[in-house]
Write a protein that binds this DNA or RNA. Structure first.
Lengths: 192, 192
DNA sequence: TATAAAATATACCGATCTGTATATAGAGTT
DNA sequence: AACTCTATATACAGATCGGTATATTTTATA
């Protein structure tokens, strides 16, 4: 298997460090040291730190959504069970059982949005886009389950997802995914 | 009315700037300039920037909870309506109609937790404590409404609250409070 | 082996960061 | 008028920040 390109080494290291220590707290020099890459190489591939941030978030988006959807759709569950498996996936994530070695530190995109207050920053667009894709995926699951008012229900379930993530991180409530699951079951039942 | 003490000037200015620009992005020097206070005065009242952050968050916690509870309990609503007024309060907040001049930039405590990854940092304890008090207040409303399984229901409603906040900020969905309200109504109805 | 591309080392820029040292000015009290 | 407390101005320390300039070395390919 081929070694990672210098560019990929940078993006991987940057993502790990941004996730671990935050975006503004993580300096360029630290990333270069940990990645074992020269500064000039970084600025060959990226015009600025912000561009590196965007690249790291793109990688996170790809990895996370792949893992998430793969888990939800595994085990040949029926459409109804699949919808509830969303919360089982969250439960694994919160308890560090998603990607190996990946310590849960909240949603990387929520964290990024918290650090980049300027709504016009490309980082913010990327965060919103990630959340939009996650909620659209959820909507698809609701449609497949044949439930009434799929748009409305999907938006409500999405709040449970986002609330569980926030609560798991800020309050350290590792059980919040199961709370969300119980609420989801009630909403789904009510929606026939 | 007496002018604010230098200490209070500092804390007020710091809170406004932390809220507007973030915690790590806001430097001591900028706060001093905007507050019109000398640097030595700051370090007379606070041992470090972190202590100023904590003081600013305490002020935010006090102000926000006061406003929130005052709104929920106004208009002599019955216990059931009061519970739903929680989401009306969120709706005002998201649409910049809570505290005058207060532009919505997500939950200050979620944002702080996003920037301070060390769980042992006093900032993190304060964020968790704020959320705990908010959820306990919610639990009280559920109990007053005489609903079944108040603990379980309150936790579920809390996820809707936190999800609405997150979604309103990250996705700019100014309508998320009403989505949360609809979900809350369904959960409450199901709980008899 | 010659050549082009990729990556490196090193030094530096100006700015900003948190925090400290020192010395001075103003206000109120005794 | 002497004293005390608060606040100020100014300068500075030491570190780190993002980013650039220059020149050299490694690597891959022709």
């Amino acid at each position: 298997m081929p070694a990672l390109s210098k560019r990929d080494q940078l993006v991987n290291t940057a993502l790990a460090m941004f996730t671990r220590d935050g975006f503004h707290s993580t300096g360029i020099n630290g990333i270069l040291e940990e990645a074992g890459v020269a500064k000039m190489t970084l600025y060959k591939y990226f015009k600025s730190k912000d561009e590196l941030v965007v690249a790291a978030l793109r990688l996170r988006d790809e990895r996370f959504r792949d893992w998430f959807m793969q888990y939800v759709e595994a085990d040949d569950a029926g459409p109804r069970e699949r919808l509830l498996r969303v919360f089982d996936a969250l439960n694994l994530w919160f308890n560090d059982k998603s990607v190996p070695g990946d310590k849960f530190r909240g949603c990387t995109f929520v964290n990024a949005a918290s650090e980049y207050h300027d709504i016009d920053n490309p980082v913010r667009s990327l965060c919103a886009e990630h959340k939009r894709m996650m909620s659209m995926y959820l909507r698809g699951l609701v449609v497949q389950a044949g439930l009434r008012n799929p748009d409305s229900l999907a938006q409500q379930l999405n709040l449970l997802v986002e609330g569980a993530i926030s609560n798991a991180y800020v309050c350290g409530d590792k059980n919040s995914a199961l709370t969300g699951k119980a609420a989801a079951e009630a909403l789904i039942k009510a929606a026939g």
